[in-house]
């Protein structure tokens, strides 16, 4: 392979990771449509979902162009199998109760906020433009999920206990955020992507700030951390999401909205 091809395949991989995380989390949030505890929350969760799906479209569309094999955003979203997906393990975790959904959102949104802030200065102009646009949406996701963490953590004994349990359960997927590989290293060397080691302390700080306000504890579960999303090693949940999300375009490949 020549250098351009290697560069492009690293960027393609990287864009899939960002795009797939947005797509799968957007899909998970869309499952709340019509089921949220109050109308305002139904609207909020589906608005956040819409942001994620909008970001996924831009990222996957760009990924297809970088790959150069004529795959569209739809081809990438609907015609890959679980092992080819690169979304963070956290994004595919089930909605659980409302608090669980908010913890998942909070942990990913804080990560996205710092990652996209850094990516908005990327040497790749197109990625920088997408990141600069997305970070402003993510800012609202951070605020919304932080507010709920504080409300639930500092709420009743039951809400506190349940939201702390969600944090304990989901914390094992946190290391996966920062578990960079040769793709990250290559893009870091070209100033296309930021060092994940530089993102982690920012993430810790923002998470800690809200946790303290909410009276919640960061669990100690370092030994059981799950990673592998960058190589397509997923938890059992992704297959079920894809089965539902991809059914229609696979059963009726040329179907279009009329």
């Amino acid at each position: 392979m020549n250098t351009t091809t290697e560069n492009n395949s690293a960027l393609f991989e990287y864009l899939l990771r960002l795009g797939d995380t947005s797509l799968i989390l957007g899909h998970r949030l869309a499952e709340w449509c019509g089921h949220a505890p109050i109308l305002e929350e139904d609207i909020a969760l589906t608005n956040i979902s819409l942001d994620h799906i909008g970001q996924a479209r831009l990222l996957l569309d760009y990924a297809g162009k970088i790959e150069g094999k004529g795959r569209s955003e739809d081809a990438l979203a609907y015609h890959r199998d679980a092992r080819q997906f690169r979304n963070l393990l956290m994004a595919e975790q089930p909605n659980g109760d409302f608090g669980n959904t908010m913890v998942r959102q909070f942990l990913i949104s804080v990560y996205n906020f710092h990652l996209y802030s850094a990516l908005s200065k990327s040497a790749d102009a197109e990625l920088a433009a997408i990141a600069a646009k997305s970070v402003k949406e993510v800012a609202y996701h951070v605020r919304h999920s932080s507010d709920w963490l504080i409300r639930l953590g500092d709420g009743t004994a039951e809400s506190h206990e349940r939201v702390q349990q969600s944090i304990n359960d989901l914390w094992i997927y946190v290391d996966d955020f920062f578990n960079g590989d040769e793709v990250d290293a290559m893009l870091v060397s070209q100033n296309i992507a930021p060092e994940l080691n530089a993102i982690r302390p920012l993430w810790n700080e923002t998470v800690q700030l809200t946790m303290v306000k909410a009276g919640l504890q960061i669990p100690q579960v370092n030994s059981a951390m799950r990673t592998g999303s960058r190589k397509g090693n997923h938890t059992e949940y992704l297959g079920y999401i894809l089965a539902e999300m991809q059914f229609l375009p696979r059963a009726y490949p040329d179907a279009e909205w009329l």
Partner: peptide, 13 residues
């Protein structure tokens, strides 16, 4: 603020 998310993506309540 009642909700940062409203009837369209660009509006808050």
């Amino acid at each position: 603020l009642t909700s940062a998310f409203g009837s369209t993506a660009c509006k808050a309540l």
